[in-house]
Amino acid sequence: MNLHFNQSLATNYKSEPQRIRVLSENWVANHSYCPNCSAEPLTEFANNQPVADFYCSNCNEQYELKSKKAKLSNIINDGAYDTMIERINSDNNPSFFFLTYSQALSVNNFLIIPKQFFKPDMIIKRKPLSATAKRAGWVGCNIDLRKVPESGKVFLVKNQQVIPRDNVTEQFQKTLFLRTQSIVSRGWTLDVLQCIDKLEANFSLNQVYVFADLLKLKYPNNNHIKDKIRQQLQLLRDKGFIEFISRGHYRKLS
Rank of each mutant, 00 (worst) to 15 (best):
D191S: 12
W138C: 13
R179C: 06
Q171C: 12
H4I: 03
S185W: 05
S106D: 15
E16I: 14
L217T: 14
R135C: 11
P114V: 02
C56E: 02
R165T: 11
E61S: 15
F244N: 09
P17N: 03
A39E: 13
K198L: 15
G140T: 08
N222F: 12
S130E: 13
D238L: 06
P120I: 11
Q160D: 07
I245W: 14
V192Q: 05
D227T: 13
V208C: 03
E61Y: 04
A133D: 11
Q194I: 10
Q171I: 14
T83K: 09
K226M: 11
N92P: 02
N6I: 07
C37G: 08
R251H: 09
P149S: 05
Y13C: 12
W188G: 08
G187K: 04
E200Q: 13
P41N: 12
L23I: 06
N202D: 14
T132W: 04
S102Y: 10
N60R: 08
F117N: 08
S130V: 07
K115E: 00
K252H: 07
F203L: 05
N60G: 01
L235Q: 02
S38K: 09
D227P: 04
Y13S: 06
W188N: 10
K158P: 01
F45N: 09
R87N: 01
N206V: 12
S32W: 12
L23P: 09
S38Y: 11
E64L: 00
N159M: 11
H4D: 06
Q7V: 13
R230T: 09
V22E: 06
R87T: 02
Y219T: 05
C34S: 04
I75N: 00
Q49M: 04
F117K: 09
L205Y: 14
V208G: 01
F244Y: 12
L193R: 01
I229R: 02
Q173G: 05
Q18P: 02
D91M: 08
S204W: 02
L176D: 08
K158Q: 14
C59I: 00
V148F: 01
G152D: 05
K119A: 13
N223S: 13
N74T: 06
F98I: 01
N26G: 07
I163Q: 04
S15C: 05
I196M: 02
W138G: 07
R135M: 14
I112E: 01
P164V: 10
G137N: 00
L178Q: 06
C34P: 03
D82Q: 08
S73Q: 02
Q194F: 03
Q207G: 10
L217E: 15
L105R: 03
R165K: 12
G152I: 06
F5Q: 01
E64M: 00
S102G: 11
L214I: 14
